[in-house]
Nucleic acid binder design. Structure first.
Lengths: 331, 331
DNA sequence: CTCAGTTGTGCAAACGTTTGCGCAATTGTG
DNA sequence: CACAATTGCGCAAACGTTTGCACAACTGAG
């Protein structure tokens, strides 16, 4: 099939080991031999087999990344960040969707183990402690981005959900709103809880009672749909402002408003979370909380590199930032 | 490190080959031996090494996908489609960004070759004929999605750019527009040319002269930015409608209009291309040409499966569909 | 001239599987 | 009961590398 070390060895009349050493610039190989072998390898179109190398060196230079779906722009940016530093460090990236299905998630992780990836990155995992049994055996480093099970498992990188959410709601309160709603995400339990906590903290600090009917957790796995569905509860509860779990939920909410003739921000103020690229292009432009997504991806991969280097790495929690645009107004 | 066939063999007092056959349900292994070995393997946490298997079977069950960036929602949907059928067919996906840099693209492809992927999928390749020399040696199937070099290389899947573009411009003409602009993309030469051709065909068919000043090709690699930059030329040329290379360009254009007080669609009609998810959530909602992106991804992977199965597969060109929303109006 | 050090290369084992072949033990057939 | 067929398992080679060790041929110092 493809040309191997042996083929080159035969052509150069040397042993395979000499070819190997020559191509790896081993000092003990004669300069002319080296040159000869290298040119021969090039002209024969030799491409070393990473799989054979992996087998013997016990290192694959691959990392496995399991995500919910790459169609989510937040996840896409994570991937971009990871890929960037992985590529420059010489690692290839296995990508696999779990579609937010825990069963699929473990299946994917097992595939990765079989492939002997050097490390694993999981985005928005719902597995949590189940990993302990699965992964403690194989000693591959694993880092979780926005893990969705409560508790600190393995190495993780988080965002300051609570602080960000509080800032968002603080902003609404400053604008004079008192009946502020929250539309959450059932499929991201932990960050949802944290953002909800920030929401509650802001209200309590302003001595505004937390009313259950202002908190909506529509039972859907689609961000947009949750926004649209949550609207009914919001109007029923007479909210004048809504903080949404994320931008896409806010966008769904806004679409619902449009259909019902509710004006944003005149009738209803809306703030999202994430600051996805499109947020500033919406009209009205979306007020939201910015997450350094690509940076989170880079950081995750850098943590991996540190771990592979035997360093002790710290879990990281990155901060986010309120971006005020046009979907929020005085009450 | 991790438990191998030999470890199980020792524990079961049989030979490694027996273990291998037992786990692979070879008929010539005794039922009790088989059961014993299987339970032993499970309790010892055995996970077969895909790399050792690959080495001997000469099949890695991996496919390499090189994309421009996953942050582009169009590309993301391709990836989702590919991943879906790859996963169910038992293949893992290597993903690598080229950032639309041809040099990076060949580097990535070489990495894939070294990893002995079973097939390669390239999105929006700018390499084209260069592949011949690179890939003819290694007999791995390759399929290109929206190849950006002219000429038919390898197996490809395309979209009916020209027909879609013509439909878009036809729509504008029907609405009474005569001065219709086009804002293109320099970094996607082929599909840009095709969409431009559709634009010209529509005009010619309506006996409207094609005027160079109505065609803008802003020199930028950012979709949004090209839209914003193209606006100046459009107003200078007194366009009453603009067909944009893609939705993100249209969104950039619309943002520029907003800043200059140009009303959409009253002052300017805009139509995009792609129908990315957000298009229907914009206000006004974007008139555009829908591409079956996920389907294209699936199809690409299905072509791969066919090729790996030794079948002769046909290049596919999928059709697209005009979706009229709110950014277009009578002149 | 001798001997230690250096330089250049080859042998062979190893990585963890799969698989063709061989062989003993069991089963079935006449 | 004899012999063929079947059943159950092991041996060893192979996949394409890397690498410790051995070894021969030089080089240079004393």
């Amino acid at each position: 099939m493809s040309v191997s070390l042996h083929d080159i060895a035969k052509a150069a009349n040397v042993s395979p080991s000499t070819v190997s050493r020559a191509l790896n610039d081993h000092p003990r190989i004669g300069t002319q031999t080296k040159a000869h072998i290298k040119s021969l390898a090039k002209e024969m179109g030799y491409i070393p087999s990473a799989v054979a190398q992996s087998l013997i060196t016990n290192k694959t230079w691959t990392i496995g990344m399991v995500i919910t779906t790459v169609a989510d722009p937040v996840v896409a940016d994570f991937v971009d960040g990871v890929d960037e530093v992985a590529q420059t460090a010489g690692y290839s990236l296995f990508l696999s969707n779990s579609r937010n299905d825990p069963q699929r998630e473990v299946a994917v992780v097992e595939t990765f183990q079989s492939r002997r990836v050097d490390a694993i990155i999981v985005v928005a995992s719902r597995i949590g402690s189940t990993y302990s049994s699965k992964l403690d055996q194989l000693k591959v480093p694993i880092v979780l981005i926005e893990n969705q099970k409560h508790g600190d498992f393995y190495h993780s990188i988080f965002i300051e959900n609570t602080i960000g959410a509080k800032a968002a709601v603080d902003h609404l309160i400053e604008l004079g709103h008192r009946r502020i709603g929250f539309i959450g995400a059932v499929d991201r339990p932990k960050s949802n809880d944290e953002r909800l906590l920030g929401y509650k903290m802001a209200l309590q600090q302003a001595n505004i009672p937390v009313e259950p009917e202002l908190i909506s957790l529509p039972d859907s796995n689609d961000d947009f749909e949750r926004g649209q569905r949550g609207l009914a509860e919001m109007v029923a509860a007479q909210a004048t402002a809504v903080f949404c779990y994320n931008d896409r939920t806010a966008i769904g909410l806004i679409k619902g408003c449009e259909q019902q003739g509710i004006l944003i921000p005149q009738h209803l103020s809306v703030v999202g979370f994430d600051d996805i690229q499109i947020a500033s292009y919406l009209r009205p432009a979306l007020t939201t909380v910015r997450q350094p997504r690509v940076q989170m991806g880079r950081l995750a991969m850098q943590m991996i590199l540190g771990l592979l280097d035997g360093q002790a790495v710290q879990n990281q929690t990155l901060s986010c930032e309120l971006v005020v645009r046009q979907t929020t107004a005085r009450k």
